[in-house]
Design a protein around this nucleic acid. Structure first.
Lengths: 259, 259
DNA sequence: ATATGCATGTCGCAC
DNA sequence: GTGCGACGTGCATAT
């Protein structure tokens, strides 16, 4: 299926032609792509200058802009959504400028030559589903506490304990309190300290034995040492395994629902 | 200046036409842009699915890929540079797949219709200069210690003190040790705790008065309270001011060099 | 290879 | 609006 009415494309346009297309794209809130030789200036929280070179500029409907060099994952310059976009022809160059309030900053892209100017009215209402996040791990433990350890009984989650929130909070088979800190990737010293902080806070309030368990797919070596020093524990827990557990449970629930 | 030999552009191509362009772009290591209706699958550290919708796909020369929806700063799916890219026509759809080793993961973008297929040989060797980073703040303090406080004398920087590295380490006008923690944005509790950690480590080794100073453009309210509790200090320090200081010094040095 | 901390991080969520 | 932590964070750097 073609959608010619929803696209504008110019190959090797003049600055005037490109400027007209950009103005039209902005006024209609279309997504804009420019490819060409440009320089970029940014000033705001920090400040940057990028000399002349060939790059891709994307301006989205919501005022987000991205400048991509031919290499690398990250944009060299950008501005998040919510910017006000200006365009103008200045002498023989095309200038696209994004201004953001709070914090006040701006990116200015100045094109001296343009290889492609294109604009699109893109429709995208699809849902995005991500599995194996830290939240999935938390839900998996709540659903199947034996993932953490046999006999574990969750009491609450995201419980506020002054310095922050405990991921999961429960009791072990011997009735001792257990504080669980979850990390979806290798846990470092930071994670251990975070857990220790919560334990301290709880111990200072309740006169009762409290165990700390760090659940993560992996543990950094230094973190392991620190964990032992602080008398805390570690449980290997893989995010993808957790996601799997949740998926199976969902399948079961669906089956029950059908029957 | 035009550069037609370095660009290929197809508006509303058939899947076959687009596939041919993509293959050519990949084999020549050109930067590739596809705009059209697609679905996206990702599996690796996590797992995701994105239903049908209109998006922009960028494949860079170095194997980085980005899938951008019409809204927002962030790509909805991506892969950093170093991926191996495959493309193929399957029935009436175009499939572009990026595979990464370490960690092993992949993104698969399946186009059912294509509004634009374009490829470019982009040249970009310009330097990128960024000012007002945390490193700039550190260098500014070392260059002009009075930015921190009158009479401050730096001794070292990035000094290892067991749990990590002290940003700047010196003496105040009364000969007391000063440990400085720098943050380029609002400092939260985390920053305060980091500083406290260093102070503790140093105090436990040296029997001498030690002051802790948190230098940041701003201080979170809770962090302020914590700072007072721990008897630490705060000094307002703006990254842009620091960058300015460095720039002026550079100007001076250049002038001296010329004379 | 692993670990550690910065980033113009961005984003979402709770207060 | 502020604060706080997660992120498929990515990235450089030091060990």
């Amino acid at each position: 299926m073609r959608a010619p009415s929803k696209t504008m494309t110019l190959s090797n346009p003049s600055v005037d032609e490109a400027n007209a297309l950009v103005e039209k794209a902005l006024s209609q809130k279309w997504t804009l792509i420019l490819v060409g030789n440009c320089i970029v200036h940014y000033a705001g929280r920090a400040k940057s200058t990028l000399g002349a070179g060939e790059r891709i500029l994307i301006v989205k409907e919501d005022g987000a802009i991205l400048v991509h060099r031919p290499l690398g994952y990250e944009p060299v310059n950008w501005q998040p959504s919510g910017c006000i976009i200006h365009t103008r022809k200045e002498n023989s160059v095309l200038e696209v400028k994004a201004i953001r309030r709070k914090p006040l900053e701006h990116v200015r892209v100045t094109f001296t030559s343009i290889y492609l100017a294109a604009a699109f009215s893109l429709k995208d209402s699809a849902g995005f589903v991500l599995n194996a996040s830290e939240e999935d791990m938390q839900r998996a433990i709540l659903l199947k506490p034996s993932l953490l350890e046999e006999g574990f009984k969750p009491i609450s989650y995201e419980k506020k304990v002054e310095p922050g929130f405990v991921d999961v909070y429960g009791e072990d088979e011997k009735g001792r309190l257990v504080v669980v800190e979850i990390k979806r990737k290798t846990a470092g010293k930071e994670a251990v300290l975070q857990l220790a902080k919560y334990i301290e806070a709880i111990k200072s309030k309740i006169n009762r034995e409290v165990r700390g368990v760090l659940a993560a797919p992996n543990l950094a070596k230094d973190a392991h040492r620190l964990l032992e020093t602080l008398n805390l524990q570690y449980k290997t827990l893989s995010p993808t395994k957790c996601a799997e557990t949740l998926r199976k449970d969902l399948d079961k629930k669906l089956e029950e629902f059908i029957n």
